[in-house]
Design a protein around this nucleic acid. Structure first.
Lengths: 134, 134, 134, 134
DNA sequence: GTGGTCTAGACCACC
DNA sequence: GTGGTCTAGACCACG
């Protein structure tokens, strides 16, 4: 049940604890983790990833403060258990919005119009794969 | 002649030297700085921004290594002087491409289709300002 | 394990941080350091060499930007860990080529033919040590 | 008589005064300047090259101290006038020797044998132009 | 007066 | 404990 696919990049410069937070969000979105599931213990995950115990604890603390997980003394750590799809879509929307907002903000500084951004995006669509429209 | 509009946010957590690097790129793109122009001296800019000259020197060194400026011992620092528009468009394109690529990569991880990204973008267009597009 | 033989010449006029960069390249080539090895911490090496830790940090930053080492906040600094011999031979070749190219370029300015250069080289072989060649 | 072809590279990082010293050596070797010739005045050359007066003066001082030129108060600066060919060949030899010695020293550090250096050199001969043997 | 190097030491982020 | 950032200030090389 806990063969989770964590990928940590030690060279990316992004703090490990943040990478863990992101990974867990992704696992939830992918469906690899479901609301109510138990997360690996801090010590287990630290050992698996060959990283420091405190680093995992910090990631869990952040998720806890964000209300995404529930840490229960002596019983373990669980993903919050609300009506499933709600959490997932909320997180997804929150994330994509942040990304888009950031893109537009930067583009604006560079003097690009919204149309320019669209054009650039479409360039990438055709390059990568013609099949991605759903 | 050198009344440049530098804006440093000391509370953003982003290193000052990186903010300077970005600012100079922006000034170039905006046309406030032109290829061949002399930049303020390290000590002058440091004094203007109320920061240490080593911090400015570090920013200039990075821009120099990136080939955007030319630092000349005892003479000052100059923006690179190639056929003007080339540099500017190159930097702009490089930047927007990076931003878009990053967005799509993240969106993909979240399971969004390209169309979803477009939709989200358009939502922002109407919210922010109705003038620029659509 | 980290009894590395660093030799810094404080009177050479060559910046200390550059000397450190060169020394580490050499240690890698000599095999005294191997891909994946941890380098001494910035503060440790600074203390050993009786220099400021910022000077070491600068050398490490350069090596990092060049992709030769991997600096990890809070964990330490490690030599890059690709298929061993690749890195070493690449660096060696890159270096010797630069040296030879430089020599030929200068010799050309002086009006020397390639044969002249060879002749001059052979003169040095016999002077220095009769064993290595000819 | 004084349309000399000076080429200064402000971006090379090599001090301008050293570039001038080298240029004058080259002009002598090329025959563009001959023993006994008058050099441009410090102010004239500084103006031509758009550089600081002191920089040229410094270059001339070095050449003077090296015995290559003779500065005569109020009369100008002249190249030393010994039996022509002597000076030229001396300078040439001195220079090529320095270059070769430097190459071998660096190659040695890298663990290259003399044969390796020869091999690398020959690689460059065939690549550049097959006609250079005199 | 210009930039470059180095030092000493404080404070922070991360592990 | 690790590296990163920034400051303050000295000294040097170059122009």
């Amino acid at each position: 049940m806990n063969n989770l696919t964590f990928k940590i990049d030690f060279r990316s410069g992004i703090p490990i604890y943040l990478q863990i937070v992101e990974q867990i969000k992704l696992l939830l979105i992918n469906g690899e983790l479901k609301p109510g599931d138990q997360l690996p213990t801090v010590r287990q995950l630290a050992s698996d990833l060959r990283i420091n115990f405190n680093t995992v604890a910090r990631a869990y603390r952040i998720l806890d403060e964000a209300g995404m997980i529930s840490t229960q003394q002596g019983r373990g750590t669980y993903l919050i258990d609300t009506s499933t799809q709600d959490v997932v879509t909320y997180i997804k929307e929150q994330t994509i919005e942040g990304l888009v907002e950031n893109l537009l903000q930067e583009a604006k500084k560079l003097g690009y119009s919204h149309q320019d951004v669209i054009t650039e995006l479409e360039k990438h669509f055709t390059h990568q794969n013609g099949s991605s429209y759903k």
